[in-house]
Write a protein that binds this DNA or RNA. Structure first.
Length: 334
DNA sequence: ATGGTTTTTACTGCGTC
DNA sequence: GACGCGGTAAAAACCAT
């Protein structure tokens, strides 16, 4: 088990940078994290979206952040589902999770006609032939076949890792783009598919470590890492280093720890961040250590061994990190 | 390739159940 | 005696140059 998340060099070596550089970095990071969670630029309060008036307003100070928004909803109203069907002029939403974005024709598998009556055996045979040919045309050229396989692969891995649908969607988009840009030649479909999923999971704030990804992929870890870097670079994707906090809920629930412990873990990580203890360290290790330390503080029994198991990180790392975390907390409270 | 970090592996000693 | 934990040294892995 090795490094479980790819970090970027800027965060990696922040500890070595000069004081002024460090100041600048923290500033940019502050602004970056603020637009991530829609905060008011004036007072930092919560931002509310008022669709009725088409305005985005700060909950605390009342600052109007955005007005005259475009309402993307339907312009009609429906009072029951029948009316909704009648007024709607669109079909199912397109999705990037299917190789043709769900737009192509699909012949149903039920041998029924438009009135729901069963088909004669002759008709059934005909439909079967049509189905076969339709399927062949639908996935005709190599790119389509390529996509079909990759998306199936992404779907399989995502389910195995318990990743939500939006992550699969993002992964599909990334893969599509990779295909468009001709990034595939010389690389395996599965490798790029895995890399796309890894990137998507991180972008969505539900990261999975490289080790976890490797466990469900058919590709070696080195290749995933290499392909991932390549795809990120070529596509100009910006992926921030994983936030340790985003691992906490998963570890906590895997270990069946209380919410209280989870909150403690978060607080530990917060004070660690403030003191810049975390730069250059593996986010997974930090999260694991925080969970362990929090369990200690709330008197819930978890062994280092168990934590290292669910986080796939070594016990030594947990020990080192959690000492640092507790020290940081100590300093913060003074 | 190299150098500087971090993480892992392996081993040892201590205390507790 | 097995287990949890702490610490250390050396090896391996990682990233940037």
């Amino acid at each position: 088990m090795t490094d479980s998340t790819i970090r970027t060099h800027t965060d990696e070596r922040r500890a070595n940078e000069t004081e002024t550089e460090r100041k600048k970095k923290t500033e940019t990071e502050a602004t970056r994290s603020s637009d991530e969670r829609e905060r008011c630029p004036e007072c930092g309060g919560n931002v509310l979206n008022d669709a009725e008036h088409g305005e985005t307003v700060c909950d605390d100070c009342g600052l109007v952040i955005d007005d005259a928004e475009i309402d993307r909803g339907p312009e009609w109203r429906a009072f029951d589902s029948a009316e909704k069907d009648e007024k709607s002029r669109v079909g199912a939403p397109t999705t990037n999770m299917m190789h043709d974005q769900g737009l192509s024709t699909n012949i149903g598998w039920q041998d029924k006609d438009a009135y729901g009556k069963a088909l004669s055996s002759r008709q059934r045979q005909k439909m079967q032939r049509l189905r076969t040919w339709n399927e062949r045309f639908r996935t005709r050229d190599s790119k389509e076949r390529n996509l079909k396989q990759a998306l199936g692969e992404i779907d399989r891995m995502a389910s195995a890792l318990g990743l939500p649908e939006n992550v699969r969607e993002t992964a599909s988009v990334i893969y599509r783009r990779a295909l468009e840009e001709d990034l595939l030649p010389g690389r395996s479909i599965e490798g790029v598919a895995t890399a796309s999923l890894y990137a998507a999971a991180r972008q969505a704030g539900t990261p999975r470590s490289l080790d976890e990804i490797t466990a469900v992929s058919r590709v070696e870890k080195d290749e995933i890492a290499r392909t991932y870097r390549y795809v990120i670079r070529e596509l100009g994707l910006e992926v921030k280093p994983a936030d340790p906090e985003s691992y906490v809920p998963r570890f906590a629930s895997d270990l069946e720890l209380s919410d209280e412990t989870e909150r403690r873990a978060r607080r530990l990580l917060k004070s660690a961040k403030e003191q810049e203890i975390h730069s250059g360290k593996s986010p997974v290790g930090l999260a694991a250590a925080a969970v362990y330390a929090a369990a200690l503080l709330t008197n819930e029994k978890v062994t280092q061994n168990e934590v290292s198991g669910v986080a796939s990180i070594s016990e030594v790392t947990i020990r080192n990190r959690y000492h640092e975390l507790l020290e940081a907390e100590e300093r913060a409270s003074i």
